[in-house]
């Protein structure tokens, strides 16, 4: 696995701290922030391969809004939504906005890592596709439709 950067956004401090610690222990370059606003600040400055984003963050801007902004700023960043409640509609909405997938809290780190792996793999395929699309574009191939693949 090539080196990548990851951002975890969750308003539950205990959760955030622990997850970040454990990911770092697994040699993953991880940053943790407690709010959507803080996340956007970071995303503006630097690129993250994957963002794990809690949907429900009372107080500031919520996960969906954050997702929308991240996708605007960094279209190539994959976002995994984290939801503690049954708001599947929200998760689906998130998927429509370009999130890679959603996972339900509580989740074991092993499961989260699996999802992460899938996201990275997809991201590579995705990047590959975009790259080839650009090449195709440059070569003036007409009418190639790009679509996102989930797996």
């Amino acid at each position: 696995m090539e080196s990548f950067r990851m951002l975890v956004v969750d308003d539950e401090q205990d959760f955030l701290e622990t997850v970040v610690k454990r990911l770092k222990k697994r040699k993953i370059d991880t940053t943790g922030v407690l709010s959507g606003e803080a996340a956007l600040e970071l995303v503006k400055e630097s690129f993250f391969d994957v963002v794990i984003l809690d949907i429900k963050m009372p107080g500031g801007i919520d996960g969906i809004e954050t997702l929308r902004e991240i996708k605007k700023l960094q279209p190539l960043t994959e976002v995994i939504l984290l939801t503690g409640h049954g708001s599947i509609e929200t998760s689906i909405e998130g998927m429509k906005l370009g999130a890679f997938d959603y996972v339900l809290k509580p989740i074991k780190l092993e499961d989260l890592l699996k999802k992460l792996g899938q996201a990275l793999e997809s991201k590579n395929v995705h990047d590959q596709k975009i790259r080839s699309a650009r090449i195709k574009e440059i070569l003036r191939f007409p009418g190639e439709v790009l679509d996102r693949q989930e797996d």
Binding site: E12, F15, T18, K25, L104, P106
Partner: peptide, 23 residues
């Protein structure tokens, strides 16, 4: 649904903390 949500968050913390101890 409300109760479940309130339970899920602490559960998420517990599982991470347990994982951390295991680590």
């Amino acid at each position: 649904a409300g109760v479940a949500h309130e339970i899920n968050n602490p559960l998420a913390v517990i599982i991470q903390k347990t994982g951390w101890i295991e680590d």
